[in-house]
Nucleic acid binder design. Structure first.
Length: 447
DNA sequence: TCTGGGGTCCTAGGACCC
DNA sequence: TCTGGGGTCCTAGGACCC
């Protein structure tokens, strides 16, 4: 009798503990494909895929496309005949459209929850802090979030709920693997449910375990998340990246070690890198490409009101004889510290072109280039340098006007001469859909 | 012919200082 | 003959994520 009482008290204790720490992950199902479908209702039940930049490989698949056996990251040119035979609809990625729809989804979620309870984790995912929701209401609250997002935006979502971020990712994954039963929603709110979920989860599907870590774990003959969280802490510390591994263990055991970060933080680095449409040997064209990438990255930089101190440029030579397994060649990189942090496109282009000349080899063929801005500082606190006075108000005003024009018109209506006109290096986008929600002249027409 | 792009965090080890 | 050691900063590189 007493034992039963203690046991129930213990259970109440566990429930109370969970009540205060519940977290959720909500993500959009097959996000890019869903966005394409939203404005083309006739695509319902037809397999759809979205391709990466340059129409390189598959980065989003509808359920029907998954059923056909199409794999994530499959190179487009290799599966093209199959796609045609199966009647799969193919789209180039349209980031302006996806970005806009993502914003709508996130704003909808934020409007339902108390302030500072949402962490936008990626374009199609957000973590939610549900610590203010009572256990009894938990299911209804989560269901309401899901229904509202789907009704207001037309994008289907899945939600996983658990005491930690890592466990909520596991819940979300399980919810999706059995959609009919779960209705894309799974709540792990008791130790038993958590244990059962961990037993169904192979280690390589756990958030935070990639290829390298999975290989180490496999050697121990540990197969599921449940077995993994029984391993000693020291093993995690030694083999899975020190404190990173220890955090992972605690998360699996239900003790929150990764917090919800509500701040929309400013980026610590900004980059723009692209594969060319076709390989280049001409320094002139590579410089044009790099100048364009610098312009893009500088726009991102100014949008978050940062300035850059360290500028890196890389180019990747083309490999002529490839083995069976595709592996890109190592980039040739160089970098410089700027005397004064800046966000001025013309100044950054000038320096970047000097770097390109340093690493470019006459006679070599290149297939990709990129620029990376790191060591960012807030633009408002720019420190002057006695020898190079910082950009005055006029310069910065000019920059913001260039950004505004480009942001609203896309495709760089105003650009710097060094970015070139012919552009033999530009991206391939054969199947680009319209800008439905972001450009007036491409709005959907209802007749 | 054709295999994405943009991020984060952490660690190890060297340089430097006192 | 015997030549320290701890702290801090920086960087490159490795791992992970979507």
């Amino acid at each position: 009798m007493l034992r039963n009482l203690l046991k129930s008290k213990f259970l109440i204790g566990v429930i109370v503990l969970l009540r205060f720490t519940m977290k959720a992950i909500i993500d959009c199902n097959n996000f890019y494909c869903s966005c394409e479908r939203l404005f083309k209702p006739w695509l319902k039940n037809i397999p759809v895929v979205v391709l990466s930049n340059n129409d390189g490989c598959i980065i989003s698949r509808s359920d029907e496309a998954k059923k056909l056996g199409l794999k994530m990251a499959a190179p487009y040119f290799m599966v093209k005949p199959f796609l045609e035979k199966q009647g799969v609809q193919v789209f180039s990625s349209n980031y302006a459209l996806y970005g806009d729809l993502s914003k709508r989804v996130m704003e909808t979620i934020a409007s339902i929850l108390p302030e500072n309870c949402i962490e936008v984790y990626s374009v199609d995912e957000a973590f939610l802090d549900l610590s203010n929701v009572s256990p009894i209401e938990l299911n209804d609250v989560v269901k309401n979030i899901k229904d509202t997002v789907e009704l207001w935006t037309g994008i289907a979502v899945s939600i996983g709920v658990a005491p930690t971020k890592t466990l909520s990712k596991i819940a979300n994954h399980l919810a999706k693997t059995n959609k009919e039963k779960s209705n894309c929603l799974l709540v792990l709110d008791t130790p038993d449910k958590i244990a059962a979920a961990l037993k169904r989860t192979p280690v390589d599907e756990i958030w935070g375990i990639g290829k390298q870590f999975a290989a180490k774990i496999e050697k121990l003959n540990v197969k599921t998340g449940y077995e993994l969280q029984l391993m000693p802490e020291e093993w995690f510390r030694k083999n899975l990246g020190g404190v990173v591994g220890v955090r992972l263990l605690h998360e699996l055991q239900g003790s929150p070690s990764i917090g919800i970060d509500e701040q929309l933080s400013t980026k610590k680095m900004v980059s723009c890198t692209r594969r060319f449409e076709r390989p280049l040997t001409d320094l002139k064209f590579i410089k044009e490409a790099v100048a364009t990438y610098v312009s893009r990255a500088a726009e991102k930089l100014r949008r978050q009101q940062s300035a850059v101190k360290t500028l890196s440029v890389f180019i990747i030579p083309k490999e002529f004889k490839r083995g069976k397994v595709y592996k890109p060649l190592e980039p040739v990189t160089t970098q410089m510290k700027l005397p004064v942090a800046t966000s001025r496109t013309n100044e950054l282009i000038k320096q970047a072109l000097i770097l390109v000349e340093q690493i470019f080899k006459e006679g070599a063929t290149y297939e990709k280039a990129g620029v990376i801005f790191s060591d960012l500082t807030p633009d408002s606190s720019l420190q002057g340098n006695f020898f190079s006075p910082q950009a005055g108000f006029g310069q910065r005003y000019l920059m913001s006007q260039v950004d505004n024009v480009n942001f609203s018109m896309r495709n760089e209506k105003v650009k710097f001469a060094s970015a070139g006109v012919a552009k033999p290096w530009k991206m391939k986008q054969e199947f680009l859909s319209s800008g439905y929600t972001t450009r007036w002249n491409e709005l959907r027409l209802i007749s």
